[in-house]
Every structure is written in structure tokens, then in C-alpha cells.
Amino acid sequence: MTKFIYRLIYTKPFALLKDGLWKNNPIITTVLGICSALAVTNKVENGIAMGLAVTFVVMASSAITAAIRNLIPQRIRMVTYMLIISTFVISVDLFMKGYVPDISRALGPYVALIITNCIVMGRAEAFASKSSVKFSILDAMSHGLGYTFVLLAISSIREFLAFGTIMNINIAGNSWTNWVVMSSAPGGFFVLAPIVWAVRSLQQDVDVEIEQHLPAPIKPATTIAATKPGASL
């Protein structure tokens, strides 16, 4: 049995899942896509909806990108990714407006802004553009779910503190005083910061900065090196 578990741990699918859910968690480690993670997480239902929407978009666009990866001309690959991503995002937006109008109303323009959520673009560029469809979908799923779990954590804390409820079910009792600040923008920052702190301390992996994870600009490598903060301008 232990042998079996060991063998499982060293398979590629397991490594991919671990990468997205824990080691390179999009929000905590690589700090990508946090705009939506903070803006729509004052209710658990919104957090879940946003997380699933992003998971779907990243899986679908990674799959398509991987499928046509040998056809995409190198120089215009960014534009191609954007075309694919925005097609899926607009589809999700239309779908939500048609079938779940309440959630669509709550998320507002942030659904459309998934297009510029760097997680989606980052996965297309970093993984799907050089991997098979099967592994790309798995990788996208693990990053999407990693994102969803963090959103779930932030939104549960925020909804509980701000309204005394979770999923609109009152659990704090009537004597609970609502922490109003938790439901507005600053609350999101104050909840996410300790989560990032805790997880990064556990990971012992602190100095991950964002530029390395942004999709590489369409420029020669020498100029990219100069974008590192600290390079004198």
C-alpha cells in the first residue's frame, strides 16, 4: 500500500495537481489574478462562482491552446491566446446572464475582466503551449481549483465577519456585530495578507516575485532582464 502511494506521488498527474493546488498556488505563491480574488469575495456564493468561472476558462483555453499549439505562429502567440481566452470569457458571461442572473448581477464587470486574469494567460504560455492536451487540462484544472480554494477561504472568513453568515445561513447568532469593513475592499486585503503570510511561512519559499510569472513579453531576452525592479533607469 505504501509502495503504491509512493508510486502515485511520483506520477506526472500528481505532480501537476500538487503544483497548482499548493506549490505554485496562483494567488498565494505567484500572486496572480488577485484583483478578482479581492473584489468579489465578500460572499461565499460569489467566491465560488468566480472560482468556477475562472477554472472553466483556464481549462477550456488551455485545452484549445494545447490542441493547436503547433499551428500558432510564434510571433503572434499572445494575441492568439487572448483571442481564445476572451471567446471563452464572453461565453461564460453570456451563460451566466442567461441562466444564473442573480450571480451575474453580483459579479458585475468582474466576469468580463477574467480576460486579463494573468492565471489564464500564464497557464497558456507557461504550460499549454508546450504540452499535450491531456496534461494541459489537468494542469489548468489544478491551478483553477487552487484559485477556487483560496477564494473559498477568503470569502468564508469575510462573509462570516461581515455578516455573521456563511452561504447566507446565519451561524453567528443575533448578538453578532457585523464587521462592516470586511465586506468592502480593505477587508479583502486584510484577510488575504495573513493567509499569504501563513502559507508562505509554511512553504519556506518567500522570494517569489511576480514578474517571473507574467507571460514573457514579446521582446528579446536581454530587455526583459532589465525590467527587474532595482535595475536603475
Partner: peptide, 16 residues
């Protein structure tokens, strides 16, 4: 603190 460096501290600054 080590774990708070980088993204963490920026979030607290932004929140404030």
C-alpha cells in the same frame, strides 16, 4: 517578517 515580505506586506499597505 519573512513570510510577509513581498506580496503580503503590499497587501497590508494597500488595505490601509
Amino acid at each position: 517578517p519573512r513570510g510577509l515580505q513581498g506580496a503580503g506586506i503590499v497587501m497590508i499597505i494597500l488595505g490601509t
